[in-house]
Each structure stands twice: as structure tokens, then as C-alpha cells.
Design a protein around this nucleic acid. Structure first.
Lengths: 213, 213
DNA sequence: AGCGTTCTTGGTCGATTGACCAACGCCCAT
DNA sequence: ATGGGCGTTGGTCAATCGACCAAGAACGCT
């Protein structure tokens, strides 16, 4: 991708996240990207186009980040842990495309909604697949509604973006692990949980100081 | 409260929820409230004032709804279930003030942020109190970080507003109950869970058809 | 009925917005 | 060295924004 296009999306992401799409002006984006409004117009015909491009980038990067993170193991339960980590790290520390995708959906012009919704659906189906594989191990409760579980977990994780502060002393990875233990305790059969679940849980709950990553 | 002020907040809430604060014009709010822009200006000196009033109303109504819902029992675990229900019903079916409070925080002018943040903090402290009482029963795991648990649960619940559709066949109360079982399984000692937890869980998971409320 | 207050009307104001463009500079291929 | 085209410049444009107000209508009180 053209480095100038990249600068635009980076600047737009930061501004959209801070103030929202509608409250951000094209002039601000251009200035933050180090160019004049006319130059931005040359790259993206409209402000809406910037938003759509940014959201599509968000889906792309999220899928890429999670895919890469889970590749190191075949255990579906462990994959969920690593996937949650990757998602939350992208949301808290990566560029702002995933945040904008999640929190500025309202601002999409109706015409573009369908396309972005479809991309977003691909990401959700990706998670449903991971959850289905975990369920397929037989180690979980007889949960029938994978979608409801996904909405539960992704809701908790996505909401972190509204309150997480890096200076809290906890890393996104630690928050993700803590949430994963909540989910594992809540949704897995008691006799089939990861052997080290209790110790992970206790360690995370008793020492909020940063230790890893 | 004056019925005209009420109409303004109601109309503003609906529009802010649909399109966001910045994308909504004062003229639209006035028209939706059945008055001319000048009349709105007489009630609220600025658009920001409408937003702040709406958010304060959101906190007020949320605290009122949850307080009333939990008054029927003294069991802290059951209170959590009823509180989650009340919160989610207000978010999905009530006026839009709670939604705007949660999802348009970015739009607050910096000067007003502190005041609303304080009100919101009161609501969060209210939940922390309920969680602390539940922990105090000794029936929960040795969870030390009440705030993290609250963020986990409230995140999952608040996110429902982004995907819930009434025509799905599930009521907000059923979603809240389902999430409450996830939380109860995940965060309570195995030997001290509600006696009917398993049956509630199974019933909710196997019959997505509406039955109650 | 008469008066003072509360509230609404319908429009104006300057400022800012997104979209747009003619002209220009720069750099690479020839 | 130079011609051609990619990318940028700096500004214009109509439209729309939030804020505001002078005038009068509607109301409650005596």
C-alpha cells in the first residue's frame, strides 16, 4: 500500500478513535497526515471512503493477528487464549482500525454498510469456528449456542477498549488471560479444564503487577 | 421534569443512538420533539447541554431501575441476576439515555467530562458494592479484583446493545440470565452455586424460544 | 378583564464543513 | 535535457452548522 495512503489511515484512525467520525474534519486528517486537504482528496474521493478503507483494514489486521497468534498450537482451548490475546492487543496497542470498526459502525453511510458488515461477519465466523472446534473436543459444557458465547466473550473483550489504561500496571495480555480463565471456568466441563487453569487464575488474581510480554 | 424538556431528551436520545451526537443536528432534535430550533434553545442553551442532561438522566434511571429490581430479595447472588436483567432491559428496551451514556462518551466536551464521569463512577461503585456483597458470602472463588470482574460482566452486557435484535426470539431478560449463568459458573465455588443453576443453564441453552417476560 | 411571566416563533448570523479544481512542481524514462 | 504524468498545492464553493434574538403568543394569577 502506498505510504501516503497509509499515513492517511493512521491519522484518521487516531482522530476517529478520539473524537468519532462525524466530529473529525477532513482538514484535521490531512494536517495530521502531513498534507493539504486537496492531497487527501486525491487519495480518497470522500471522507466516507476513508472510513470504509479503515474498517476493511481493521478486519484484515484482526484476522491476520489472530491467525498468526494461534498458529503455534493445535489445542483449541489454548488457541482461544492466544486469539483473545491477539485481538485485545490489536485493540489496545495496535493501530486504531479495529477500534473504529467496532465503535464507529453507526457512522457508516447505508450504502457501504453491507460490505463492511460482510467483512465483519467473516471475522465473527472465524471466531465461531474456533469456538466450534473447542466445543468439538468434548471438554466443554453442552453449550448449544456458539453465537451467544461468542457475543459474551467478544463483548467483554471489546469493552476493554473503553476503560483500559496502559499505566494501570496490567498488560492487555494479562487482561485477556484473566478473562479467558473466567470463560474457561464458566464454560468448560469441570473434569476437562486445562491442568494449569487454577494456577494461572490464582497468579493473575493475586499479582496485578506486570510480569510478561 | 417539564414535559417539553422530556420530549427533547427523548428525541435527542433516539437520534444520538442512531447516528451519534456529532452527526445529529439541533434542527433534527427540535423537529423530532415537535418544536422549532429556537424553542429548543430556550430549554437548553447548547447542544452539549442536551447531551449532558441526557447522560445524567441515564445514570439516574439505571441506578433507579437496578435498585428497584434487586429490592425483592436479599440473596446477593440472586440480586446480581436481577440487576443484570434490569440493566440490560433498560439498555435494550428503555429510553436511549443509558445507551448514549455508554456509547457517546467521546462526544462530551472536556469541561463536562468530569461531572458525568463522576456520576458514572457512582453507578460503577454501586455495582462494585453488589459484587462485594456476593463475594462476602464466601460462595465465590477467591477473586480479589472486584473491578476486573465488574468490567468483564458489564462489558459483556453493555456490548449486547450492539447486536441485540428484538425479533431474534430471545428477550433481554433471557440474554441477561444466560450471561449470569456463564458468570456464576465461572466465578463461584463449585460447591456453593445456586441449586438451580444447572437447570436454568440447560433451559436457556436448549430453548431459545421466548418463555418469560 | 388586565397584567406580568413563561414559552414559542421564524428567521438571521458568522463560522465551518465536505467536495472540488486549475495550476504547478517534481521525478523518472527516454 | 526534456517531455509527460503522478502527486501536491492552496484556495474556492455552496451548503449546513450551532448559536442567537426580537417579537409576539399563550398562560397563570389576581
Amino acid at each position: 500500500m502506498d505510504p501516503a495512503d497509509e499515513r492517511i489511515l493512521l491519522a484518521a484512525g487516531r482522530l476517529f478513535r478520539e473524537k468519532g467520525f462525524a466530529a473529525t474534519t477532513v482538514r484535521e486528517i490531512a494536517q495530521a497526515a502531513g498534507m493539504l486537504p486537496g492531497s487527501l482528496h486525491y487519495r480518497y474521493a470522500s471522507k466516507d471512503d476513508v472510513l470504509v478503507a479503515l474498517m476493511e483494514r481493521g478486519v484484515k489486521r484482526a484476522i491476520a493477528a489472530v491467525t498468526e497468534a494461534i498458529a503455534v498450537t493445535r489445542d483449541p482451548i489454548e488457541r482461544l487464549r492466544l486469539g483473545l490475546r491477539a485481538h485485545l492487543e490489536l485493540l489496545c496497542r495496535g493501530d486504531d482500525s479495529l477500534y473504529v470498526l467496532l465503535y464507529d459502525f453507526r457512522s457508516l453511510p447505508p450504502a457501504a454498510k453491507e460490505g463492511v458488515e460482510k467483512s465483519r461477519g467473516r471475522y465473527e465466523a472465524f471466531w465461531d469456528g474456533m469456538l466450534y472446534e473447542a466445543w468439538g473436543t468434548g471438554r466443554s459444557r453442552s453449550v448449544l449456542d456458539v453465537e451467544l458465547v461468542r457475543q459474551f466473550g467478544m463483548g467483554a473483550i471489546n469493552w476493554v477498549a473503553t476503560w483500559y489504561r496502559p499505566e494501570s500496571g496490567r498488560t492487555p495480555a494479562q487482561v485477556a488471560d484473566a478473562f479467558w480463565t473466567y470463560l474457561a471456568f464458566g464454560l468448560m466441563r469441570e473434569d476437562a479444564r486445562p491442568a494449569d487453569l487454577d494456577s494461572i487464575f490464582t497468579a493473575l488474581m493475586t499479582s496485578p503487577s506486570p510480569e510478561e510480554d
